[in-house]
Design a protein around this nucleic acid. Structure first.
Lengths: 167, 167
DNA sequence: AGGCGTACATCAGGGCTTTGATAGATCTTG
DNA sequence: CAAGATCTATCAAAGCCCTGATGTACGCCT
C-alpha cells in the first residue's frame, strides 16, 4: 500500500495552481526550445520584442511591459548588452535614466527568433477555435483581477506619462 | 511620445504567452504573500503538500509530482531539511534512494500554511461558476497537450511502479 | 528655494529552475 | 551471469526572479 501514486498525482494536479502552472511551464519549455538555437532565453526574447515595439524606453518601463521587476529586467538587459544585442545610453533629457534600444545585430536576431516564437504561439492558438481563445483569455484575465484585486497596502494613483522617452 | 505606450502595452499583453504568464504570476504572488508569514515559498509549500499525501517517496518522484526537475526539488528539499521541516533517510530496500517525509514540525507548519494557500485558491475558484472552472481547466489541459505533444526525441513507455516506497 | 513624492538604477542576498554531466544501484533480458 | 536500460542522487554553471535597501534625479507645491 503506500499512498497509491496515481491518486496522489491526481490530487496534486487538481489543485487550481497546478493547471495554470503546467500550462505556463509547457509554453515556456516549448518557447525555450525554439529559442535555444538563437542563444536566447524566453525573458531575453520578451525584452527584445518589447524593445522592438517601444525603442528607447527606460529599463523600468521595459520591466513593466514584461511584467517583471526592474531588477530582473536589469539582469536580462545586462546580458543582452554584453552580447551586443541592445545598447544603453543616458537619456538626453533625464540624466540618470538609461534608454535602451536594439542594436542592428539585435534587430536581425529578433527578426529570426520572433518567427519561431510566433510559430509556437500560432500552433497553440490554432488548436482552438477563435471563440475558445477569447474565452480562455477572458477567464485568465478575470483570474488575474480576482487575485490582484483584494489589494493590501499599495498606494493607488494614475501613472501614465512623466516623460522619459525619446525619438 | 514615440511609440504610444498604451498601445505597446496592449500588443505585448495580447501575446498568448502574456495572459498565461500573468495569471501564473498573479497566483504565485498571492500565494507567496500568504505563505511568507510561515517562512515558506510556493515550491516549498508544494513539496510539503505533496509529501503530506505521499510520505516517504523518493526525491525524483516528488519532483515529478510537483512538475519540476529532480535538481530543483533537491534544492527545495535541502532548504526544508536544513530547517527541520522534513527528514531524509536512505530507503531500507533501495540503498542510494533517499526517502523523505515531513517532520512533526513540518506537519504542524503545513497544516497552518495549507489553510492559507487553500483560501487563496478558493477565493479564485469562487470568482467563477463551476462550469467556468471546469472549462478553464479543460482549455489549459488542451494547451499543455498541444504544446507538449509534437514530441521531438523523448522515449515513450509506461512508468508506474518500480518499488521505492515504504511504510 | 526647500521639501515631499515619485521614478529610476543598482547593490546585496536568497531562492528556484534548467541543461549537462557524473556515478551508483536495480531491473530486465540474452 | 553479464550487458544494457532505467532510475536515483548530485555537482556545476548560467539565468531569472523576488524582497529589501541605497542613492540620485526630477516635478510639483508651498
Amino acid at each position: 500500500m503506500g499512498t497509491d501514486e496515481k491518486k496522489v498525482a491526481e490530487s496534486v494536479a487538481w489543485r487550481p495552481g497546478g493547471a495554470v502552472k503546467r500550462a505556463e511551464q509547457a509554453l515556456m519549455a516549448e518557447k525555450s526550445r525554439v529559442l535555444r538555437p538563437f542563444g536566447l532565453t524566453v525573458p531575453q526574447y520578451a525584452a527584445m520584442y518589447a524593445l522592438s515595439l517601444a525603442p528607447g524606453i527606460s529599463g523600468a518601463k521595459l520591466a513593466r511591459l514584461c511584467s517583471v521587476t526592474p531588477q530582473s529586467m536589469a539582469t536580462v538587459i545586462k546580458t543582452l548588452e554584453s552580447r551586443g544585442l541592445v545598447e544603453r545610453r543616458p537619456s538626453s533629457d533625464h540624466a540618470q535614466v538609461l534608454v535602451t534600444r536594439l542594436s542592428r545585430a539585435g534587430q536581425a536576431l529578433l527578426r529570426k527568433a520572433d518567427a519561431e516564437a510566433v510559430a509556437v504561439e500560432r500552433r497553440l492558438v490554432d488548436a482552438f477555435t477563435p471563440d475558445e481563445v477569447a474565452l480562455l483569455r477572458g477567464l485568465l484575465e478575470r483570474a488575474v483581477v480576482v487575485l490582484t484585486d483584494g489589494e493590501h497596502d499599495d498606494t493607488e494613483h494614475d501613472d501614465s506619462e512623466h516623460g522619459a522617452d525619446s525619438s
